[in-house]
Design a protein around this nucleic acid. Sequence first.
DNA 1: CAGCAGTGCTTCGGAATTCGAAGCACTCAT
DNA 2: ATGAGTGCTTCGAATTCCGAAGCACTGCTG
Lengths: 103, 103
Amino acid sequence: MAALDLFGRRWTLRIIWELGNEPLGFRLLQRRCDGMSSSVLQQRLTELQEARLAEVLRDGNYTLTPLGHDARESLGPVIEWSRRWAAELADAPSTAAEGAGDG
Amino acid sequence: MAALDLFGRRWTLRIIWELGNEPLGFRLLQRRCDGMSSSVLQQRLTELQEARLAEVLRDGNYTLTPLGHDARESLGPVIEWSRRWAAELADAPSTAAEGAGDG
DNA sequence: CAGCAGTGCTTCGGAATTCGAAGCACTCAT
DNA sequence: ATGAGTGCTTCGAATTCCGAAGCACTGCTG
C-alpha cells in the first residue's frame, strides 16, 4: 500500500515515466513534465532518491536505479491500458447513462 | 499522460485496488482506505464514475466497470513490484546506517 | 576580466487540494 | 419511537502545489 501512496502523489508517476526514457537534467526534466513547479520537482526527486528509485549520475543528470527501472516497467501495462481507456472515452464521450445499448 | 494525471491524485490508485477485490459500500470502502476523508472519497468516486472506471450497483455498492477492472489488472505488475521494493528497502534501510560508525 | 546564457536548487506568498469532524435524510430491526 | 447503520454534504483548517524570482556556479565569447 505504501507504493500506492508514493505513486499517489502528483507528478511522481510522470517523473518515473520520463526518467525511464533517458537520464535527464533538472530543468529539462521539468520541461518534459509540462513545466511542473520546480519546488515540487525537487521534492519528488528527493522522495524518489530516498525510495531508491532514482539517483544522480556523475554528470549530474537524474536517472532511474535498477529498482526504478523495474518500477517503470511495471507501469507498462498501465500505459497500455490508458490507450484503451482513451479510446473508450472517445467512443462514448458521455452518453452511457441513457438507454441500454443492448436493447 | 492523462491517465498518469488521473492516477496521480491521492487515494485514486488505492480506491481502484480496493474496489477491484469486491464491490464495497461508501463507508466500508472508506475504512478499507485507512479511513480517508469522506469528502475526498466522494470526489474520487465521482471522478472514477466520470472516467467510466467505476459505477454503482443496483444494491448501492460501488464496483469497477469492465474498463475499471482492466485498469486494476494493469496495476498488478505495480503491486508485484512494490513487494520487491519493500524487500529492497528492508534489505538496505537507509544510507545513514552506512556512515554512522559511532554509537 | 566582463557579459550573456544555462544549470541545479531554494525561498516565499497565494491558490488548490485534502483532512476531519459534524450533520442530514433515509432504511432496517426492535 | 428508538438505536444503529448508510450514502452523501458542508465547512473551517492543515497540507500540498503552483509559479515566479533569485542565488551560486559553469561554459562560451571577446
